Simulated scan of single mutants.
Amino acid sequence: MAESTHDVATKDAGNYQYIKQKLMVLLVGQIASCMIAGTSIISYTLANEYNIDMPAMQSFLNYLFLFAIYGSIYCANHSFGTTFRKKWMTYLFLAFVDVEANYCIVKAFGYNSLVTVMLFDCATIFFIVLLTMFYLKIRYNWRHFLGIILCVVGVSLQAITGYNKEEGRLIGNFLGILSSILYAISNIGQEKVVKDSGILEFLAFIGFFGVQISGLQVLALEHQQILQFRWNWSAVGLFLGFVCFMYVLYSLTPYIMKFAGSTWFNLSLRTSNGIGAVFEIYVFKKNIYPIYWLFLSIVIIGLCIYHINKPPKTKNPTRDPQIPAV
């Protein structure tokens, strides 16, 4: 039986909405990628151009800004105390993992080059896929795996060609891998929390606990550097730029997690490597192998293959989440 005009129109509208949502997620993912590139470039500049080694302080300012804005909105519309009593252990754990992941990755920029640290951070993809399969029960099809494999192969080849033994110091490499494990745990927890409890609650409490944890680290590890450092407007501007980039990144991340999941979020961030490479060449005046761009193209192809497929399924599928309002 031929489809009625109404059925055809409904189907076309559904396809249009699906394509629109796909493009929106793609766009938001690339904005997040630009933000991650910005934070990496600023962290590298602070560590190598200004000799500022204050990763906990950078995180503290970020969480303070998050709690000041999202915490205020949450307290004005919800019972902060009630939620705190019910879920404080969950948010304390997520905040601790997130704070330490940020600390490790920023600290690594003091040991290795910009591109090297960003490439080691790509290991997050591997840990994310494992955790989503075993913890969130996500089922990927062969097309998803093809896209993931291309991304992993692309960044691995980038790492091999761009690796320099003089720059590849053991401590920096260890911090990069450790941060990728912590980010994977943080992202999986964040995906589950934002789908269960909402974006505003997550941002308010991650800011609340993040301020306290990073604040303690500042007092314990960096108070002498803060007192002794001769502050100037350039350094202050970089700190403020870092906070702004992180604020936008943290504001966008829960939307991507809720709509597309942590795997797509981490895959979309891989294009930040190209931005980092451009700054490495033209700003920091360092050499990168030309074939690096071919390998970056492999990453982009992998992203496209992953994203044009329908989202991965869970063993207990639910209605696809829509991008919500805060």
Rank of each mutant, 00 (worst) to 15 (best):
K107V: 00
Y282E: 04
K192L: 10
F259Y: 13
G81V: 08
D7K: 14
A108G: 09
I125A: 07
E280Y: 15
E201V: 05
F80N: 09
F120I: 03
P321D: 11
L200Y: 06
Y247I: 09
Y16D: 13
K258E: 10
Q224K: 13
V218A: 04
N141Q: 09
A123P: 00
V211A: 07
N48V: 05
S197I: 09
H78G: 03
Y50H: 13
I41E: 08
P311Y: 05
P321K: 12
A95R: 02
A101E: 07
V283Q: 09
G29W: 01
I177L: 15
A204M: 04
N232T: 01
K87V: 00
F120S: 00
F84R: 01
V236G: 01
S43L: 03
P317W: 07
Q21P: 00
I308H: 12
F60S: 04
S262H: 05
K310C: 00
C122A: 13
H144C: 07
Y183E: 03
A76P: 00
V243W: 05
T124W: 11
C244S: 15
F65G: 06
Q17V: 11
G302W: 06
L130K: 03
W88D: 00
S43G: 10
M57A: 15
A204T: 04
Y183M: 06
L64V: 04
G176K: 10
L146C: 12
G276T: 08
D196R: 12
A95V: 03
I256Q: 03
E191C: 02
A101V: 02
K165M: 15
